[in-house]
C-alpha cells in the first residue's frame, strides 16, 4: 500500500516496443526520503522505466503516478526536475541564456532567472562558461550544464539519468558531493550503470531485470556490511570449500563466484561485534587451512556483486 508520502506509484506498468516487452507488470511504490537508485543490466528496462517515470514515454499498460499525478502534469511543473541523458541544448545560444529561459518557465522573473541560472552554473563549477554556446563545450561540461538545469529553483523530486557518465573522476566526485549536499531538501532518483555511485549516493535501490523489478531494498540490507565477508582470491575456489565454510558456526550461506571471477562471499548471522568477529576469524582460518590464497577481503558485498548475482541468467 502506498503511504501518504508516496512519491511514485506504479501499478501493472508495462511498455512494449513492437513485439518487445521492455517493461512488464511493474508494481512499485517509492517514498520521499533518501536517494533511490535505479539499476539493472543492459536491456533490463531501466531506461524505459526511467523514461516512463519522467513522462518521456507513455506506458502501454498500467498506471504511473508522480506525487499523485500523472507524469508531467501541470501541477508538477517546477516541482519535478529531470536530468535526461541525451537531450541537447540549442546550438549557438549561450548556456546562461538557455538556463535563464528554463528558470523563467519555472516562474522566475527575467532578471531573477538570470541570477538563478548563474547560481546553478556556479553549483556545477561552470560560472566561467556562462557565455559559451554548447558547441564550444566538452561532453563533460555539457553534462554539468544539464545537471545545472535540474537544480534550477527548488524541485521536490529530482530524476537523474546517469549523472556521472562522461565525467572525469574529480568532477564526478564533485557532482556526487553536490547531490549529497542537497539530498536532505529533496528526493533524488538516480538511474545509473555505475553501481559504486549508487552505493555511495543512495539509501535504497530498485533492481530491474528483463523488464521486471527483481528487488527493491535498502542498500545497507543488500550489501550486508555486518553479516557477510567477500573475498577476492588468487584462483577460483574449489567447490569443497562450501562444505568446509558452512560447518563454521553461524555461517548461513556460501556463494562462489562464476568461473574466472575468483570470488567468494560468506554470509553469517549477525550477532553483534563479539559473535561476528569470532565467525570471521573462523572463516579466515578455514580458508587458510584449505590453502586458498586471498588478495582482498571486504566486509559485506559490493552492490555491484549483489546486482550481478541477482540478475545473472539461470544456468542449466
Amino acid at each position: 500500500m502506498a503511504g501518504p508520502d508516496a512519491l511514485i506509484k506504479t501499478e501493472g506498468l508495462g511498455r512494449d516496443f513492437g513485439r518487445t516487452r521492455a517493461l512488464d507488470k511493474v508494481d512499485l511504490v517509492l517514498e520521499a526520503g533518501a536517494p533511490i537508485g535505479l539499476v539493472g543490466p543492459n536491456g533490463a528496462g531501466k531506461t524505459t522505466f526511467f523514461s516512463v517515470l519522467c513522462g518521456f514515454l507513455r506506458p502501454t499498460r498500467g498506471t504511473v503516478e508522480v506525487m499523485g499525478r500523472p507524469p508531467l502534469h501541470r501541477d508538477l511543473h517546477g516541482r519535478v526536475a529531470i536530468l535526461p541523458q541525451d537531450a541537447q541544448f540549442i546550438k549557438g545560444v549561450p548556456v546562461l541564456s538557455q538556463l535563464a529561459m528554463l528558470a523563467e518557465l519555472q516562474g522566475f522573473s527575467a532578471a531573477a532567472a538570470r541570477e538563478e541560472a548563474a547560481r546553478a552554473l556556479q553549483m556545477v563549477l561552470l560560472a566561467d562558461a556562462a557565455r559559451k554556446p554548447p558547441e564550444a563545450m566538452s561532453h563533460g561540461m555539457l553534462k554539468r550544464i544539464a545537471i545545472a538545469q535540474a537544480f534550477l529553483g527548488a524541485p521536490e523530486l529530482v530524476l537523474l539519468d546517469e549523472p556521472t557518465a562522461g565525467l572525469d573522476p574529480a568532477t564526478a566526485s564533485e557532482m556526487k558531493n553536490l547531490i549529497r549536499s542537497l539530498d536532505k531538501e529533496r528526493t533524488f532518483i538516480v538511474s545509473s550503470h555505475n553501481l559504486q555511485d549508487i552505493e555511495e549516493l543512495c539509501g535504497s535501490v530498485v533492481i530491474l531485470d528483463h523488464g521486471k523489478i527483481v528487488e527493491h531494498r535498502k542498500v545497507s540490507e543488500l550489501v550486508a556490511r555486518t553479516s557477510c565477508l567477500t573475498f577476492r582470491l588468487e584462483a577460483d575456489p574449489p567447490e569443497t570449500i562450501v562444505g568446509k565454510l558452512t560447518s563454521v558456526p553461524l555461517v548461513t550461506r556460501v556463494e562462489l563466484g562464476r568461473p574466472g571471477e575468483r570470488r567468494l562471499a560468506v554470509h553469517f548471522r549477525d550477532q553483534g561485534d563479539a559473535g561476528g568477529n569470532t565467525t570471521q576469524i573462523a572463516v579466515l582460518q578455514a580458508l587458510t587451512a584449505a590453502g586458498i590464497g586471498m588478495i582482498e577481503m571486504t566486509r559485506g558485498q559490493s552492490l555491484q556483486d549483489k546486482v550481478i548475482e541477482m540478475t545473472r541468467p539461470a544456468q542449466g
Binding site: 519522467c54 517546477g78 537531450a87 528554463l102 544539464a146
Partner: peptide
C-alpha cells in the same frame, strides 16, 4: 522539429505543457 530531434523538449516538458 528540432525540439523533438535533439530531445531539447526533455528540458522543457518538466516545466511547461
Amino acid at each position: 522539429a528540432s525540439d523533438l530531434g535533439t530531445r531539447h523538449i526533455r528540458f522543457l516538458i518538466p516545466r511547461v505543457g
